[in-house]
């Protein structure tokens, strides 16, 4: 039981409450994050309804292959994350660590793909400003939003990767046992980053395909 005692932190009376509290706190934070992205999606929706043609033209220049690969990577990482959490709850430390490892690897693969995609975009001068290759000018709004949306998402994912690596170190050195409340919060956050991508994907990569 010393393991459990180490997992318990102030001011919680017991571990069950602590887990519940952490997951609740995380959900409150996610509600906040949802509104953060909502402002972005709202801008996108309004501009798209005003410049449907420009958004179609601009959307046709996104790299659907990178986007699709990334979707698969992230969805799969959500799977391994779920298994990691389940394993942690069942106190299977090794399985937890392996699953977290795969999750991190998938996350990093996502970021590398993203980097390649950004590279291609910059090669094609798809950065709003003078010399922007597309017309009409409202295509620049799409691309401005593209950079901001994917950029912010990538920052969120990078944060997730860093946190998961930190958690792996903590678990690996047995500083905190896996069945504590930590996994709970990490998993919820990871899934959230995935859910944002589920909406970014059709809005960005599928906008100008038909």
């Amino acid at each position: 039981m010393t393991d459990l005692a180490r997992a318990l932190q102030e001011p919680w009376p017991d571990l069950r409450m602590q887990r519940e509290g952490v997951s609740l706190g995380m959900w409150f934070f996610l509600a906040s994050e949802v509104l953060f992205f909502a402002a972005l999606f709202c801008s996108y929706a309004i501009y798209r309804s005003y410049n449907p043609e420009a958004f179609r033209i601009a959307g046709a220049h996104t790299k659907v292959i990178y986007g699709s690969i990334n979707t698969v990577l992230l969805l799969t990482s959500s799977l391994t994350m779920t298994v990691a959490l389940r394993a942690a709850t069942a106190q299977l430390r090794r399985v937890t660590l392996i699953c977290l490892g795969i999750t991190v690897a998938l996350g990093l693969a996502f970021l590398i793909t993203k980097g390649l995609e950004y590279h291609d975009d910059i090669e094609e001068h798809l950065v709003p400003g003078t010399g922007f290759p597309l017309s009409p000018p409202a295509t620049q709004i799409f691309w401005g939003l593209y950079w901001i949306m994917t950029g912010i998402h990538a920052i969120h994912l990078s944060a997730g990767v860093v946190v998961v690596i930190a958690v792996m170190i903590i678990f690996g050195r047995r500083i905190i046992p896996v069945q504590g409340s930590t996994m709970e919060g990490v998993a919820i956050y990871w899934h959230f980053v995935d859910s944002v991508w589920i909406f970014l994907y059709p809005l960005i990569y599928l906008a100008g395909r038909a």
């Binding site: 997951s23 909502a38 959500s78 994350m81 779920t82 919820i188 899934h191 589920i198």
Partner: peptide, 26 residues
């Protein structure tokens, strides 16, 4: 994703309400 991977189906109703709240505000 939310129901099966984030395990909302087994979550407390409070958590479900919080998850819904974000959508309501959107």
């Amino acid at each position: 994703l939310a129901t099966f991977l984030m395990d909302l189906k087994n979550a407390k109703s409070l958590v479900r309400i919080v998850a819904m709240a974000g959508l309501f505000w959107i």
